[in-house]
Amino acid sequence: MEKILQEAILHGQKYTHNGNPASYIPELQKVNSSDLGVYIRTLDGKEYGVGSYQQKFTIQSISKVLVLTLALMDNGFDKVFGKVGVEATGDPFNSIVRLELKHLQKPLNPMINAGAIATTSLILGKGGNEQIERILDFAKLVSDNPHISINEDVYHSEVQTGDRNRSLAYFMKSTGVIEEDVESLIQVYFKQCSIEMNCQDLARIGALYSNNGICLKTGKEIIPKSICRTVMAIMTTCGLYDASGEFAVNVGIPAKSGVGGGILAAVPNKIGIGVYGPALDDKGNSIGGIEILSYLSDVLDLSIF
């Protein structure tokens, strides 16, 4: 397996020069754009890592997977999907256009920013501090890493540059999708995006979803099977922004990317994969990371289709 991962890294490195780190959040530019790492966890507990797999990065939009899961556990399907849809979009992840179409009434899915902010508003807690603590505790639980924390520098950078996300939240407040205080909510959203992990953490999360929410170490259910399946379905159709369809065709693995360079992938009943490569394409996805997953999907026959 390590040899295959080495080959996947070499394949991905051919493409990293075509991308750049995210520029609209200044702190995210302070990375080595040629970094590339991958980590795999199998459902029998074996783990393999190659490249910059220990490098920490903020998970950004990957947090949407965890928050959607927690929101569904807190509220049930009807309430969550009464606030946000499950349909794919061909628009950029931070677009406001669809919110203005009266026949839609709610964000198209939980993996775009508007939908994610609406989902975050559903996390139970007495105010923003308790909400983010619950999200952080859940991140520690599903990654089996009690040391997961928030990168404060990235968080403050998001606060200073996050006017587009504020506008999405205020627009949804005006239409009734969001009922909570916008400023408190948007701080929670910025903090969840600034949670810091590495490829190993992502692979362990992916393995948990792959195993239908059953912890590999204890055999206990952490996430209900029905929620795991729903979240992975949405990852498949919406997880890579407006490149999700192309990724489904070429790679065929449920996955969620983030502009910090990470990609979380979960192959049902097989393995969890964590990938890191901060050089992004014009859709906001890791160029090298996508190529690594494409290589692994071909070699290991991982496509779910």
Rank of each mutant, 00 (worst) to 15 (best):
M1A: 05
E2A: 04
L5K: 09
L10P: 00
K14L: 05
E27P: 13
S33I: 01
V38P: 00
Y39K: 04
L43T: 08
G45V: 10
E47D: 08
Y48Q: 08
V50W: 14
Q55E: 15
T58P: 15
S61K: 07
T69A: 04
L70H: 14
F77L: 10
G82K: 14
G85M: 06
G85Q: 08
A88G: 04
G90N: 04
F93T: 03
E100N: 06
K106C: 02
M111K: 12
A114E: 09
I117E: 06
A118Y: 02
S121K: 04
I123Q: 08
I132L: 06
R134P: 15
V142I: 15
I150C: 07
N151S: 07
V154A: 03
H156D: 09
E158F: 03
S167K: 04
A169M: 02
Y170P: 06
G176F: 13
E179C: 01
E180A: 08
D181V: 10
E183D: 13
S184R: 11
Q187L: 03
V188Y: 10
Y189I: 04
F190M: 08
K191W: 05
S194P: 00
I195Q: 12
C199A: 05
Q200L: 14
D201E: 10
R204H: 11
Y209W: 15
C215F: 09
L216F: 06
L216K: 00
I227E: 02
C228S: 14
M235R: 05
C238P: 11
L240P: 10
S244E: 08
N250R: 14
K256D: 10
S257D: 06
V259T: 06
V259C: 02
G262F: 14
A266V: 13
P268V: 02
P268D: 03
V275S: 07
Y276W: 15
G277Q: 13
G288C: 05
G288A: 04
I290Y: 07
E291I: 04
L296I: 07
